[in-house]
Design a protein around this nucleic acid. Structure first.
Length: 143
RNA sequence: CCAGACGGCCGGAUGGCCGCUUUCGGUCCGGGAUUAGUCCUGGACCGGGGGAGGAAAGUCCGGGCUCCACAGAAACACGGUGCCGGGUAACGCCCGGCGGGGGCGACCCCAGGGAAAGUGCCACAGAAAGCAAACCGCCCGCCGACGCCUCUAGGGGCCCAGGCGGGUAAGGGUGAAAGGGUGCGGUAAGAGCGCACCGCGCGGCCGGUAACGGGCGCGGCACGGCAAACCCCACCGGGAGCAAGACCAAGUAGGAACGGUAGGCCCGCAAGGGCCAGGCGGGUUUCGGCGCCGCCGUUCGGGUGGGUCGCGCGAGGCGUUCGGCGACGAACGUCCCAGAUGAAUGGUCAUCCCUUCGCGUUCGCGCGAAGGACAGAACCCGGCUUAUAGGCCGUCUGGCACU
């Protein structure tokens, strides 16, 4: 079942994702992720929530002033949105909040490379969690 | 053809695939109200339409709109503007003139009211910087060391360093600026002392709506500059801003505590009510008028991730005609043209276009690579300022060549 795509819109949401400390840096973008807890805050503790229970993927975009003026920031956000729209329905994990952070390289990087960056970052974060290790901050060498 | 001046315009094009937002129509699925008919409202899909700029920018002026009860009057304070006439809703904007300056020219530039209302300042240099003075010098008078000449001894004469008194402002020198400039006359030397021209001032005349210009007469020159020093004059300006503001929902709340201060009259058994005084009301005071009510001060607390409206028919765009040198105005016709809110208006690929470079060339061009600016609406208009690759059009000026 294809998960639905939503948007992160408020500052507290972004702060929660950043606090999860699951982050991967690629040349074209930075990806942060956070599993959402079960919608019902009942006593059922850290038991893994089934994907079918909460099928929504939510994505937020952050492009700071460091990237450039308003036109450049708009363009970076739009490229990230296009990449996410193409990749996330297939590769993203349902019930997760993602934040994509634009970099200066987001503007210049070829589209296919940007797509590969997102796939690699998703796989890496998935493997970290799947291996049971604590989510950690990593950096990929530039190809 | 080259160089230049001014004005106007464009701001890559087409297509495929995948999206966003808004609106209209349809289908389907919900929610609410209602006896029902029906109405309100949310979502998905399909189809159609709209979807960034000339500066959207800086937020520097002017307005609309909203709230401050009204935005009233006068004075003061503060701020702004500053040649004249016009345009405009208005402006510090625009147009046309005037004056001054620059350019061979087309044209360009100018913070351009008042310095005989007052105060202040004028560094350095210089004798002297604003009220008349005089450092060097020039000239006149008197005295006159030394020297020279002369004489019969006392003496006389000449020359002159210097001193005293007076005249002068031409020359030197300083400066951004030294009490008009140039020339001729004049004089002991000089000086508007006299004259001519220029400048300046005053008066009236003519032209012009005016700024101002022209010429005439008079005056011998007084009145230096700085107002982007204070200031004076004229005119303009109430304040805050769409996070304005309105409604709905939620909400401990109709905030709390402490201190100070709460007058008089009337109705009423009382609770309470009314009037006057008092206090508060976004520069100050006074007046008019209105609203609110215990008032004032200190401390503490709540809220700041809600929704809808405001929100786009407007000083609106385009076209034609008419008026005007022009800014602009009028009439008629026609069009509806972005409304987001972690913030849409795009992502990607291909082809074409333009520029640069390299290679090839049959000089027509072909192939390859790189690049295509400044920049994103946030309530809306009118301006200004700043940024901007490349390109197009028109008018004009100065050269060169040809006829």
């Amino acid at each position: 079942m294809m998960p639905t795509i939503g948007r992160l819109k408020t500052r507290p949401d972004f702060l929660k994702v950043a606090a999860a400390r699951a982050k991967w840096v690629t040349p074209g973008l930075i990806l942060q992720a956070r599993r959402r807890p079960a919608p019902e805050p009942t006593i059922q503790r850290d038991r893994p929530v089934l994907e079918s229970g909460d099928p929504e993927i939510r994505i937020g975009f952050t492009v700071s002033r460091k990237v450039g003026n308003a036109v450049r920031r708009n363009r970076a956000r739009r490229r990230l949105r296009a990449v996410a729209q193409e990749i996330m329905p297939g590769c993203g994990r349902a019930g997760t909040d993602y934040v994509l952070i634009g970099r200066r390289e987001t503007l210049e990087r070829p589209y296919t490379a940007l797509r590969d960056d997102l796939c690699a970052a998703l796989k890496r974060l998935e493997r970290d969690r799947g291996a049971g290790r604590a989510p950690r901050v990593g950096r990929q060498r530039r190809p």
